[in-house]
């Protein structure tokens, strides 16, 4: 990556402003001789939210890890902000990842660090002064309404709180792309709604590009049919029959992308698998 970090003060996400946030180009990957993703191609435009649906074990988390460069594809290319991350060295990826936030399936908080140290981890590694870390951590935690948990350890938090701390950790550097890996998995409906509200808030307040992996249809359709009202500071349903124009769907089945389109197209699809999946 010859052009990576040429201008130190320009975020990597802005070096190629016209490039899509994420682009998969004929990507395949397998583990232990078994194909997981088979020749996938799709893209996420700037400011767009793509909801990735599919049965459990279909490779949704693998796809997210490919988008963050945590896995390398067996074949094909993965581009993020115009950089071909599938061909980048790990050392070069670290700088690009400053523009990417990821929320792991179970939160993946560092269990021996406090909430403050977890959320401010990236800033600590960048040697940001302590007072600034405290300020930015508090800001990020306020976004997820958990500013009172600064000194707690992850084990002292509930599952939903841990997921919200993970979101705070992902957004603290104001990334231009956020990858959510089943952010509501294993949570009760009320906590799930709180998490989805945060995802919608991030989408509508900051216009962040994102991929949201989920197998909960109610969460997916809530994302598509609600918006965040900045004045009332609350999530509200969009008028009947309308959906968020920046939110669209991808559906994975048996390693292949069986759907790539809008909410309307998904709901009105004639595909037998999709009909059965959505039923």
């Amino acid at each position: 990556m010859a052009d990576l970090a040429v201008q130190q003060d320009v975020p990597e996400s802005q070096v190629h402003p016209d490039a899509p946030a994420v682009q998969f180009d004929d990507v395949s990957i397998g583990f232990e001789g078994k194909d997981v993703l088979d020749h996938l191609s799709f893209q996420v435009r700037r400011g767009e939210t793509r909801i990735l649906l599919g049965p459990a074990g279909v490779g949704k988390s693998v796809l997210l890890k490919l988008a963050d460069g945590l896995f390398k594809p067996d074949s094909g290319k993965v581009f993020v902000f115009g950089y071909e991350i599938s061909a980048m060295r790990e050392e070069d990826l670290f700088r690009l990842r400053e523009s990417i936030g990821i929320v792991f399936q179970e939160g993946a908080l560092f269990d021996s660090l406090t909430v403050r140290d977890n959320v401010g981890y990236r800033l600590t590694e960048q040697h940001v002064p302590d007072d600034q870390i405290d300020k930015r951590v508090t800001e990020a935690l306020r976004f997820v309404e958990l500013e009172h948990t600064l000194t707690k350890l992850p084990s002292e938090l509930s599952g939903g709180m841990r997921r919200r701390v993970a979101i705070a950790r992902a957004i603290i550097t104001k990334p231009d792309l956020i990858l959510y890996d089943s952010p509501t998995g294993g949570l009760d409906p009320i906590t799930s709604t709180t998490i989805i509200e945060l995802v919608i808030k991030q989408r509508d307040v900051y216009g962040t590009s994102s991929i949201v992996v989920t197998h909960r249809l109610q969460d997916a359709f809530m994302l598509a049919s609600h918006h965040f009202n900045k004045e009332t500071e609350q999530m509200e349903p969009l008028p009947e029959g309308t959906t968020d124009s920046s939110t669209s769907f991808l559906v994975l089945h048996q390693g292949k992308m069986v759907f790539d389109g809008s909410t309307h197209d998904l709901v009105h699809s004639d595909d037998e698998f999709l009909k059965q999946y959505l039923a």
Binding site: I100, A108, L109
Partner: peptide, 14 residues
């Protein structure tokens, strides 16, 4: 197994 190593890499630390 709890993805903390992946999280560390994702947060820019080797």
């Amino acid at each position: 197994v709890t993805e903390q190593i992946d999280a560390m890499r994702a947060l820019g630390t080797d």
